[in-house]
Nucleic acid binder design. Structure first.
Lengths: 266, 266
DNA sequence: CAAAAATTGTGTGATAACGCACATACAAAT
DNA sequence: ATTTGTATGTGCGTTATCACACAATTTTTG
């Protein structure tokens, strides 16, 4: 079962929805549909027409591209800080990338038509959606840089921090195999990097459960890519008012699915 | 001196400007300022506030990120097909990346305030700008994938084709050193890859002048990343009406500047 | 025309990541 | 409690790319 019962959910757990002025929020509220987002669920397949826009609250979604020979690479990650489906209001109705739930939880969704209508009014939702898209662009750009210049270990730190930022507690539920698929590297490479991080005392892990032990040290160890994106998000996006005070609590284990089939690497 | 005399320039050489309906175009026309864009010119520094949006006509601009230790990586490339400065209408007024002229030529620019005003009207310019941004997102995503999974030789092919697409002729004016900076790899790596492409008869080159000899073969040799982006651009963006018929003519040599200082690689 | 600078070519050894083949360890299921 | 499956650990040879050093050209400059 998925963590958190539905009645503990609230659209304002999503930072974008929380930042909407009351009038707009109330207009959208009846259209917001709560959806459980289980691990491995493909919100949208590569090239498929988007039917909804998703505002994750407790779930985390990966945007990734799968190559012809089955290798994959994460392009960006979205959680409570943003929305999935920017192509809808940007003019395409699909993208070459796939959206997959990377960490199970809940989210709210709007029908494509409803979102487009509200976006075209040119009000707060438009401004928020565009600002978030700009933050997403920064994340994608930095992913490209990171893939070019930084080690698997640095990229693992980045992934862990990005995920940790979007979860209430310190426990990440993800196997090394899944991490390898997201980073687009070998599983063994993740094993070695994670082993070093554990030996250094930054994290501890066991069979799909990673606990962040020393976040400040992780932040020192990660490459600049993480910090560049973080800073840009803070600059562009509405701050989650309880983000700082929020106590990190242990997360609840959820059921596991296959993420993506193991990449066949050239 | 830069190729093409100013009076051979026309804003409609830029595909986005060309796609604007007459009414909008005429409204913007008096505000469009023709600017020569010499090789190496930094349109906008990382983190600096954007003062203008640029619509290249014959020039090509690289968006690239420079790391703390001086290494660089191209994020995306824009020419007559698009515009430089999406952050302006997306809500940020700056980006962590730098915009540098990669191939000298001309372009038109609009003051930030003028563009923002027109964008807020929600008309054709907004729709075009957003569609182009979606295409840019695709390019950035594919750059991330390419950096992760493909060889320097494949990436060189991609760079050559992207550049060739944005030039009138078959001659690209760029040194291997400059290419290395854009790809974020060693200059020697480019020398070797380019040597193989020349040996195969796809290109020929000499001291900063590369001629595309067999484009169809290059297109077969390049990784899927190029084709994914091309297809998505064709789908999202207004087609340049003379793109197909346009005769490729030899380009004219321009003066050379330093692109970026050689990266110190960790 | 000579000197200086820019561009490209080549060789050598180091390294990070790869593919593959297993071994080990823990968890879930019958 | 034993089996089955999932997750992680490890070793070994291979490869792409790296860093560095320098040679060989061609172009530009004084």
């Amino acid at each position: 079962m998925i963590a958190n019962s539905p009645n503990s959910n609230n659209p304002k757990q999503n930072d974008l929805l929380a930042a909407l002025p009351g009038e707009v929020f109330l207009r959208l509220l009846p259209e917001l549909e709560l959806v459980p987002m289980p691990l491995g669920w493909v919100l949208c397949e590569s090239g498929a027409k988007l039917t909804h826009v998703y505002f994750p609250t407790t779930a985390i979604v990966s945007l990734l591209y799968v190559t012809e020979d089955g290798a994959s690479a994460e392009i960006a990650m979205t959680g409570r800080d943003g929305l999935v489906g920017v192509a809808l209001f940007m003019g395409g109705d699909s993208t070459p990338s796939r959206a997959v739930v990377q960490s199970a939880g809940y989210g709210y969704r709007l029908k494509a038509s409803v979102l487009k209508r509200e976006f075209k009014l040119g009000g707060h939702l438009q401004a928020l959606a565009l600002s978030y898209t700009q933050a997403l662009i920064t994340q994608m750009a930095q992913t490209a840089v990171c893939n070019r210049h930084h080690t698997v270990e640095q990229q693992l730190c980045r992934l862990l921090l990005l995920t940790h930022d979007r979860l209430p507690g310190d426990e990440l539920v993800m196997t090394q195999e899944l991490i390898a698929n997201m980073l687009g590297v070998r599983r063994e490479g993740v094993t070695e990097a994670a082993g070093r991080l554990q030996a250094a005392g930054y994290i501890k892990y066991s069979r799909g459960h990673i606990t962040v032990l020393d976040r400040p040290r992780l932040e020192k160890h990660v490459c600049e890519c993480y910090h560049v994106v973080k800073k840009e998000c803070d600059r562009l996006l509405p701050q989650n008012p309880n983000a700082l005070q929020r106590e990190k609590e242990p997360a609840i284990t959820v059921n596991r699915h296959v993420y993506v089939e193991r990449a066949v690497r050239h």
